[in-house]
Structure formats: structure tokens, C-alpha cells
Design a protein around this nucleic acid. Structure first.
Lengths: 176, 176
DNA sequence: CGGTTACGTCAGCCATGTTGACATATCCCG
DNA sequence: CGGGATATGTCAACATGGCTGACGTAACCG
């Protein structure tokens, strides 16, 4: 009986497949942020703080403007979040060496601890999903996700043919 | 040189792989919602309206409580959004036949039009990503995404061995 | 020296989530 | 039939995290 639908309307399956994809994004993202959100709210922080902590942990010494272009929010929005993280000593800043106007950001020990706790959670979720889906599926997942994201964001990831390297976003070692 | 890292610290690649996965979710989701958000704001609507319109379009005749459990938000949050959509005739409601306490929701022609416009956009983005990644990759994407989402949400999707059917969430024809 | 850049801040607005309390209509069981 | 449970709606208040606009300071650089 199921085949009848496909025979009658071959476009239907295509539409259904794409709608499922839409829902995958929604449901997976929701699950992905659920636990971290809970942990964060216990510390009086929110998802925006998570993102900031995450990317500062990812690129220690990142400048404010680089962080802004990664997050693509306004400086006023970041400011609110960043000020709190500085005040509560999750993040520390030091002036840039070459350009003393810059405030280079890095996690404090307290920030490292929280980052670990939050990311650990998402890593476990992902690791489980990867394991249950299998290596080949992970490669497919990677391909599709890279194609969904904007070209600019995609450029931050090395091609899969070579193993991923630490110098994410090309600002690897030095300041940008 | 790149291999040195892997030899020195074999766990590093694993961590890097998982961190990239985290970023895939963030960047892809951001891109996925970008265009619809723009379209919506032109109509004085937001992402929450999109979700409501989407799921009402997906399951015409859905009850408010079923919609609530799909969205997993409070009735007060939904109410604000739904009231506006009713008032501006994107969505219409009729009492349930068997249970007249229910308000069964469906899209008006205006709502269908907007839903088409919004979903069309995401479908195109996904279709392009699927096309460029290839059928095998899509299958992997599907597997990983299903494993990321909660078991409850996952249950709404038929197993991939049989072609997907319209009766999504098991409430296909009847009321739940 | 003067324009540009990096960063910060104040003030206000909006969308969307939350909790708590309460109201109404309908259903269904005993 | 009566009363508890259910489906829905509503008022009020609050938090988060986006946004715009305006303005200020310090440092860089030609």
C-alpha cells in the first residue's frame, strides 16, 4: 500500500524527505542545547554565554572583533554577555601585543572548568550519535552539514581529505 | 607535519572531530533560520510563528495540546503566537468533532502561502546540500541527526528501511 | 596632526521563553 | 446528575538575548 503513494505522486517522497530534514535540524538542535542550557541557568548564565565561552576556549587569545565576526551579533549584545563573564571571572583579557587597542580574550581556570562541563555534555551526545550511526554515516553527516552552512562559515573547516588541524579559522597561532 | 599531531596525541583528533560537530550544528542551524527570519520579520512575525505555521501545515487539524507537545513550550508562550496568527488570519480553528473542547488548527490560504514561502526556502537550501553531498551522505546525515535527537522525537520518524509516509507522528488520520 | 579602527557604554525596544494564578467549557465516570 | 479531570484561554510579571542609535576613549597609522 505504501508504494501506491510513490506511484501516484513521485514528488511526494521528495517533499517528505526535505520536510524531514527540516525537522531533523529543529529537533536535533533543540536536544543539543537542552542540557547545557540547564547547566548554564544554574550558574545564572544563558546560551549566549555558552557561545562566548565556547569560542574563547576554542581560540584562546581571540580578539573581540574576531569573536564578533564569529558570532555575528552586535557588539552591544556581546558586551552584555562578555562584561558579565569578565566580572565573574570566567574570562580574562589582556591587551594585544602588536596592537594595544585589542583586548585578547582567554578563559580563566573557572571558565575552563565550565567550558569543559558544557562541551563535555555535547561531546558525549555527539559521540554517542556518531558511534551508533557509524563512521560512514558521520562522513555523510559532515558533508551535508558543511553544505548547509554558509560558504564563509564552511571556509573555517579544513577539507576532510586531510585530518582536521587545530588552527581553526586560520588564525591558528598568531593574532589576526 | 600534520601527522605529527596525530602521532603525538591520538586523542586530539577525536576531540577536534567532536568540536567540529558542535560547530556544524551551530553554524548550520544559524544559516538554516536566517532567510526565513528575514521573510518573517517583514510580516511582523518571528521564528516562533514560523514553527507554529510549519507544524500546523504539517498536520492540518492538529489540536492545541498536540501542537504544544510538539513544540515543547508553555501554553502561554504558544498562546501569544497563536492568537496573533488567528487574528491575522494565517491560521483558522474549528472545534473538534468528537471532543468539542478541542480547537483544531489549520492554515488559511494566507497561511498556506506564507508556509510555502518559508519552507520553500529551507527546502531549497536542504535540497542543494543533499544534492552536493550525494545520496549516501544524506543517509548518513539522517542517521546521525536521528541519533542526536531525543528518543521521543526520533519516534516520530519512520525507519528508513521503508519509504517515509505522510502519517507523521502517528496521528495521521485521526485525532490523538 | 587627523582620520580610522578597536572597543566600550548608555538607553531603549522587541521577540520569545518562563512561572503562577485563575476562568470557562466540555468530557466522562460513578 | 454531579463533580473531578481535561482542553483551552488569559492576565501579569519576569528573564534572556537579539536589535538600533548615539556617543566616548584610546591607539594606530599615514
Amino acid at each position: 500500500m505504501a508504494d501506491v503513494t510513490a506511484r501516484i505522486n513521485p514528488l511526494f517522497l521528495r517533499d517528505e524527505e526535505l520536510r524531514q530534514g527540516i525537522e531533523f535540524l529543529y529537533f536535533a538542535y533543540r536536544e543539543f542545547t537542552k542540557e547545557p542550557d540547564t547547566i548554564l541557568s544554574e550558574q545564572g548564565l544563558g546560551r549566549a554565554h555558552h557561545r562566548t565561552i565556547y569560542f574563547v576556549g576554542r581560540q584562546p587569545g581571540i580578539s573581540v572583533s574576531d569573536l564578533l565576526s564569529t558570532l555575528r551579533i552586535t557588539k552591544q549584545s556581546l558586551s552584555r554577555v562578555l562584561s558579565q563573564l569578565l566580572k565573574e571571572d570566567y574570562i580574562r583579557q589582556r591587551p594585544g601585543l602588536r596592537d594595544r587597542r585589542q583586548r585578547l580574550l582567554e578563559l580563566s581556570p573557572k571558565g575552563v572548568e565550565l567550558e569543559r562541563k558544557l562541551t563535555e555534555n555535547q561531546r558525549k551526545l555527539l559521540a554517542r550519535a556518531y558511534r551508533e550511526a557509524g563512521a560512514e554515516a558521520v562522513e555523510g553527516f559532515r558533508k551535508v552539514m558543511l553544505n548547509i552552512m554558509s560558504e564563509e562559515d564552511r571556509a573555517h573547516f579544513p577539507a576532510q581529505t586531510t585530518p582536521p588541524l587545530p588552527g581553526w579559522r586560520g588564525t591558528g597561532g598568531g593574532a589576526s
